[in-house]
Simulated assay, not measured.
Amino acid sequence: MINPRFSMLIKIQQEREEKLQAQFVAAQQFFQQSEQKYQGLANYRTEYIHQSQQQGSAGLQSRQYTQFVSFIGKLDQALLQQGRAVAQAKAAAEQRKQSWLAMQKKRKALELLVERSNMAELQKQLQQDQRNADEFASQQFMRRLFTAEQD
């Protein structure tokens, strides 16, 4: 039987662990969304350059070329920013994962401690029961012996 104090501690640990797991899942999803945005931007940049090259083969005016270069520069900046956001999201997800795993480890250690405590208590109770049974058997033997001597 689990001591009520230990039961409450385990319950608190489980709740903390579940909260940290939910935070990890949310951070992981945010990381994946950030990565998808980055890939979308990179694909758009590649497609824009490809289309611009096709249009450019027919000839570009200097104004169009300047706009093209300027827009590619803006896309490159957006990719850099999104790349940083992806790196930060990945680091945050990893940190949340480590926190969750550490809490899981604490909970398992507490459960193991409780299990060992319960086993020690059970062993103690079994030894006490054995002593009681030995004492009872000894008393029975002495009564029979005493009764046999009086007959």
Rank of each mutant, 00 (worst) to 15 (best):
I2N: 08
N3I: 04
N3Q: 06
P4L: 01
I10K: 03
I10N: 01
I12G: 00
Q14N: 06
K19R: 07
Q21T: 04
A22D: 03
Q23R: 07
F24R: 05
F24W: 08
V25L: 08
A26Y: 08
A26F: 06
Q29G: 11
F31P: 09
F31Q: 08
Q33A: 11
K37E: 11
K37C: 11
Y38S: 04
T46D: 15
E47A: 14
I49F: 05
H50A: 14
Q53K: 12
A58Y: 11
G59F: 02
R63F: 11
R63H: 13
Q64K: 08
Y65F: 13
Y65Q: 15
F68L: 14
F68W: 08
A78P: 03
A78G: 05
L79G: 02
L79N: 04
L80I: 10
L80T: 09
L80V: 10
Q82G: 00
Q82M: 03
Q82R: 02
R84A: 10
R84S: 11
R84C: 09
A87L: 01
Q88S: 05
Q88I: 05
A89R: 00
K90W: 09
K90E: 10
K90G: 07
A92M: 08
A93Y: 05
E94L: 08
Q95S: 10
Q98H: 09
L101V: 04
L101K: 07
Q104N: 05
K106E: 04
K106D: 00
R107D: 00
A109G: 02
L110R: 03
E111I: 02
L112I: 06
L112T: 09
V114E: 04
R116M: 09
E121V: 10
K124T: 11
Q125T: 09
D129E: 14
A133Y: 15
D134A: 13
E135L: 13
F136P: 09
Q139R: 15
Q140E: 14
F141K: 14
M142V: 15
R143C: 03
R144S: 13
R144D: 13
A148R: 13
